[in-house]
């Protein structure tokens, strides 16, 4: 379990990082928290020849609330997200989600942007990003561009980023207080990647759902926006029964993979069980 040989550089500015990455982009990897990349290298599933360590690059950390969007620096540690004082439904979603990422040592080191760039279909941050139609800002020596979440996550471990691009920040819409948000997941052990995760942001005005976003993890190659659940919820009277119906619709809609942790039917059952838990409707009326 030792990585194959690689070169290591630690640039001190974003420009320098981009230049280093541009030298040999296909054989290089950006090193952020290292909590996914290093295990993959030890398993020899990744064999980069060069690591560009961005941990000394200034300006990549922090959670900055703006007018209608919140911007999160790519290198913001999971733990900093867990401790954010951000108000409102978005803040509470971020804190709840962060607490379920791995274990404390992993959260101390691993980063928000690293998770998004890594693109694991069960990752909390990929789910949240897809749920809220996040926008990813990426830069290279060729310039800067912004990629919407719908285009960003392409396949397992595959994003729309080019190999010479560095993810610098992610922006999420600020959610007003009419929103109910939540995330619930099922893992065999505390700290494991979820077998299935469900996250939702629902806007309720006068007891009626006026906007519904539902995103599921562990049921497809990339985070799955459940249109079935969203349209079931939209326009319905907010109730536990409506959420249960939406969960059932989502479970019917997905076509999940089977592996040693559970077959497709089991994952569908988990979708049915978890979406109501994400929206914490246990106490709500039916």
């Amino acid at each position: 379990m030792k990585p194959s040989a690689f070169d290591y550089v630690r640039p001190l500015s974003l420009d320098e990082a981009m230049e280093q990455l541009a030298i040999d982009p296909f054989e290089s990897k950006v090193l952020s928290g290292g909590q996914s990349l290093i295990p993959m290298m030890n398993f020899r599933l990744a064999r980069p020849e060069r690591l560009i360590d961005i941990n000394r690059v200034p300006g990549l950390e922090g959670i900055v609330p703006g007018q209608d969007r919140v911007t999160i620096g790519a290198r913001t540690r999971h733990l900093a997200v867990q401790n954010t004082g951000l108000q409102g439904p978005l803040g509470s979603l971020l804190r709840t989600a962060a607490a379920q990422v791995g274990h404390l040592p992993i959260r101390t080191r691993g980063t928000f942007g690293g998770s998004i760039a890594h693109c694991d279909a069960a990752s909390e941050w990929c789910l949240v990003a897809r749920l809220l139609d996040a926008e990813m800002t990426v830069r290279s020596t060729r310039g800067e561009r912004t990629i919407p979440a719908a285009d960003f996550f392409q396949a397992i471990f595959t994003t729309a980023m080019e190999p010479d691009e560095i993810l610098t920040s992610i922006s999420l819409p600020a959610l007003d207080d009419h929103h109910v948000t939540g995330i619930a997941e099922f893992a065999r052990r505390a700290g494991d990647f979820a077998i299935v995760a469900a996250t939702a942001a629902v806007k309720i005005e006068d007891g009626v759902v006026t906007r519904a976003r539902v995103c599921l993890g562990g049921v497809s190659e990339v985070p799955w926006r459940s249109q079935a659940a969203e349209s079931a919820l939209l326009g319905s009277a907010w109730s536990a029964g409506a959420v249960a119906e939406a969960a059932a619709a989502a479970a019917d809609e997905v076509d999940p993979p089977s592996d040693s942790h559970g077959d497709a039917d089991y994952r569908r059952d988990l979708v049915r069980a978890l979406l109501p838990r994400a929206l914490n409707t246990a106490g709500a009326g039916s």
């Binding site: 065999r188 052990r189 505390a190 700290g191 494991d192 040693s260």
Partner: peptide, 27 residues
Amino acid sequence: YEELIYDERGVLVTTSLMDYLPPTVAE
């Protein structure tokens, strides 16, 4: 929790601690 699983060709599929799950102190 723990279970070693071979596939139909006799290949062990649980070869890391992501697949073979010793409980942690939390369990």
